[in-house]
Design a binder for these strands. Structure first.
Lengths: 206, 206, 206, 206
DNA sequence: AATGAATGAGCCTTCATTCAT
DNA sequence: GATGAATGAAGGCTCATTCAT
């Protein structure tokens, strides 16, 4: 609680960031409104004032998280690259991006535990438009046009596979390490895994 | 509440199954002990009587889930198959197994949200070697020996990739559908995805 | 539950008084938070709101009880009395005070059963000097200076004895009565006992 | 649980001793039947089998404790001593006895917290006959007959005072130490206190 | 004489949320 | 726009005790 009046938008943003961390760390049910308030020295009352209820806050967190991700995806510049290089770049970007944004991955895991029930209520997320898939579609078309890619490649299935490998790498790290050791998560091994993922994807399209 | 004195093991098993469903559905924090009791018309009291506390029950659920999975994996018979056929069979088995055991997948997701904190306390899960990886190792060795597989194939990285694709398919279905529609989850599309996964894996080793 | 918004301090005080009665009557373990709430038509929730937990409430009760006693002791005015009269007055005061504040005596008994474990956590009780002992010291010094008291009198040992007799009279009344009848607890007998205590103490110092 | 059939009386005695320790340590409400069972590796079931319920066990503990004390009191041999020596001996015995049997003191404190409600139900304790008071009466009569003691001495009031000092010394040690330091409880100081108590009592009768 | 299994009742505590200004 | 005070509902858990043999 900074001592006096401040920009409402700043307060909102503070709460949102604190909530993102709290929800990502503890899940929707495990998160505590009080703990979110404590993270930024505000009161629970403020949180309800700005976001209505816990679910509303969670939805705002989810919305912001997705918006951020989509924006970063949109910023990926593949212009001028050959289809193969563009695809390689896209895969590398996704793999790295997921590793760098574990909180987002966790929020998605949590939302899946809840069968995407909350996402469904968020209007801004209902539109299925998605930069990642658009870029992939362009790459595929260019690749097919150039006779480099197979004709029966589905951009969606391709995206599914890129996502799966990049997502699992972050999402399941804990249990995978428990079961098989953490050897695959050293910097070296991750670099190799990344390259393997790229090659797998390229192998599919070619 | 069945009238009286039945097999204690049966009661324990009932609770465990009810708890598995409840935890898989709602997560550790979202699960309600009362709801678990209600699922089998027993009392909360019995649950604590058999499992000590909610965490103990959750751990028992996790342990049983993993044990079941490992047993089913161990039952997979690949004897007599060529390396390629064996690998194909193993991938198909994993893909199908995960689809058929969504509750297990959800428990693993939940445990990952908790950084595998509870798994770590379960002795029977800490040391156990894993049949899946053993089988994969044998396949790889046979494949290399036969000059069919590349020499630099890592069974562990291979397992990682098989798991990633099979796991994501179930775990992220909800959010993926929200973002890209549920086209990939029709029976037909799933069959194609399954085949794509097989091909990806084979492409890696060969 | 009074309708709305009253002085928070009044609510706190109400709870504290109700808790004092409840704890004095039933001990820490025997006391029921619900019963405390019922005593003043409030909810358990309010109790935890104001005092955190049962132990915190108990500590607050103990603190207030000691504070009250010390304040009453401090209010005892012995100025202008001769050493003998002052000592007599102090003994009488202590004897009467303990009889009049059975709840305090019971709280001290209870705390002794708990080896003063909770008292130890109360800061305000740890360092506070004690008026009773100070007054006694002054009396002793004056008495010695006047050649009335023996030289080897210890104010502390004297306080110990005054307390013992005054405390036991209240604390052990029930079992003493069970064992020897309640003859000693009639008004008349108590007056005699009181005088006997005074004389014992005077006999020690002179 | 010793492996097999044993003397029922021995089991009873084991439980009783364990319960004495548990009740003395934690009070009636603070005591746990399970903890009593654990102390002697038996089951709760056995306790209820032998003593009916927790209250019954507590009563048995109280009865045994009182019986032991009374027996030890009866064993005190004052024959052949002068009235003054006998009284001195009796006081010293009481002071020492209480110090040596803190568990008994604690049980009495606990029973007083409960207003001697349970004692009242124990038939063997209802008879007010008491060796201590009988001995004191004899001493007083002999003292008066010999012209050594004052005529208006009441054995009961005398017993009250001896008990008060000896009891408080043990019962209130914790809180007294918290308030005034534990200086009075060193061996040296206790010896002095003991002598002071003797002198006080002698001063009363002479 | 002895016991493993089961349990009703109630305990302290926590949570998100609303009240009233 | 902002907030201190209050709270209903439920949560996990524990306790002494009984059931049935």
């Amino acid at each position: 609680m900074r001592t006096w009046k401040q920009d409402p938008e700043a307060v909102r943003a503070d709460i949102l960031n604190a909530a993102t961390a709290e929800f990502a760390q503890n899940g929707l049910d495990g998160a505590r409104v009080q703990d979110i308030a404590d993270r930024i020295q505000t009161s629970k009352r403020m949180i309800f004032y700005y976001f209505g209820d816990k679910d509303g806050l969670y939805r705002a967190v989810l919305e912001q998280a997705y918006r951020s991700v989509r924006q970063r995806e949109a910023e990926l510049d593949l212009k001028g690259l050959s289809p193969v290089d563009a695809l390689r770049r896209l895969v590398e970007f996704t793999f790295d991006h997921h590793r760098d944004h574990a909180d987002f991955i966790r929020l998605v895991m949590i939302e899946n535990i809840h069968d995407a029930r909350h996402m469904r209520k968020i209007e801004s997320l209902s539109g299925t438009s998605n930069a990642a898939i658009d870029q992939l579609r362009e790459i595929c078309e260019a690749g097919k046009a150039a006779g480099l890619f197979r004709d029966d490649i589905s951009p969606l299935a391709l995206h599914w596979q890129i996502s799966a490998l990049s997502f699992f790498n972050v999402a399941n790290r804990s249990t995978f390490s428990m079961n098989f050791g953490d050897g695959l998560f050293s910097e070296q091994a991750q670099a190799e895994l990344r390259e393997q993922v790229v090659k797998s994807i390229l192998a599919i399209v070619m």
